[in-house]
Design a protein around this nucleic acid. Structure first.
Lengths: 205, 205
DNA sequence: GTCTATAGCCGGATAGAC
DNA sequence: GTCTATCCGGCTATAGAC
């Protein structure tokens, strides 16, 4: 999927230095998304966050630790998003469709940088990074949420159906990113929504 | 899609040194696929190819030039694959289904390293590499081939349908890679084939 | 054409003053 | 907690002997 890890609301946990920590994580989050993990250097982050390089190591011992912080951050953002959907809509079908529609909210970012979860997962898997399971779990979280909605609609194929929805969404974002094609993203996501609706309305899939 | 760029048949163009060149490209191709472009160093390639580092620069001025060589190589492999499908089957539908079935040939590689075209495209897009269009054109080549087959079947939605097939296939390989899940790849690809068949048999899509 | 040695740079990480 | 100065290693790339 492709929700932007937006809505950056620092928690201010513990006053003082937490501020700087947030700044670092937020800057790293954005840069890891835009340029990828490997291609982002501490200098890049330092410039973006306005924090001198040396200070990083007070908060994060290694670059990997910083990545861990970023993934946790994304997880929190994702949970907030899913929670707000749960709160805003009682009908699970409405929840799901709202999620699928929301994917086009961060349109431009997705065309430029792809899905924050999908691209991170792909990069970490390829480089064999220890943190790849953490990235994968982001995708799994969203798949489970979708499955939960489908189950609430009484579907006994919830797990497989959810997987297929995730699969198709990821395919759309990957191609839209690869082609840099805005229309592709919008049209194909509409197609996915249409397909989901049709299946929910009883068409075999 | 996810064909392995296998069937490495050096062309022996120009005798002598061409041999070494092939070795370098073949090794780089494999390593770029397994580890990604950025994460692969000349040392890695040198070890794998059994060619000293310094010798690289006789054939390729820069790492980017080497990447170009690798992409050309993949393009040739892809064209060979598509040509052989054209030759082996007269029926466009058979051609298409054979292609979709063939995606599971390199099963293990795809689960470990993803689709050679999709992952490369994603990496080059994210890092803003000049060669990203070249990688994209690999995907486009396969999409066009699929569209050609569909058109030969008399479908007037050939371009969109082809795009959707590509989209779904890419989604499957991305998730199979991210999850490292062999079953996911096999099952979801079967689902894609089933869906294509159903649409071709007249079911609305 | 082939290969060794090495330059030059930039990355992540450290030490330690303030 | 904050920041400067610096180390060390690996990388791409080059020079030049053979």
């Amino acid at each position: 999927m492709a929700e932007q890890a937006d809505k950056r609301q620092p928690v201010e946990a513990g006053g003082r230095g937490a501020e700087n920590r947030e700044r670092i994580v937020a800057a790293a989050d954005r840069l890891f998304y835009e340029k990828g993990f490997q291609a982002t250097s501490f200098s890049d982050i330092a410039d973006a966050a306005g924090v001198p390089k040396g200070n990083f190591y007070y908060y994060f011992k290694t670059k990997d630790a910083l990545l861990e912080g970023v993934i946790d951050w994304r997880r929190q953002c994702l949970k907030k998003l899913l929670n707000s959907l749960n709160v805003q809509h009682d009908d699970p079908r409405e929840r799901l469709m709202t999620l699928l529609t929301g994917l086009c909210a961060g349109e431009d970012d997705i065309v430029r940088y792809g899905c924050p979860m999908g691209t991170l997962s792909a990069e970490l898997c390829k480089t064999g990074h220890e943190m790849k399971e953490q990235a994968q779990s982001l995708l799994e979280t969203i798949r489970e949420w979708i499955a939960t909605q489908l189950q609430a609609m009484g579907r006994d194929d919830a797990p497989e159906f959810a997987r297929e929805i995730l699969t198709r969404s990821q395919g759309v974002t990957l191609l839209a990113h690869a082609y840099g094609d805005h229309h592709l993203l919008v049209e194909e996501m509409a197609r996915v929504r249409h397909w989901v609706s049709a299946v929910l309305d009883g068409q075999p899939h």
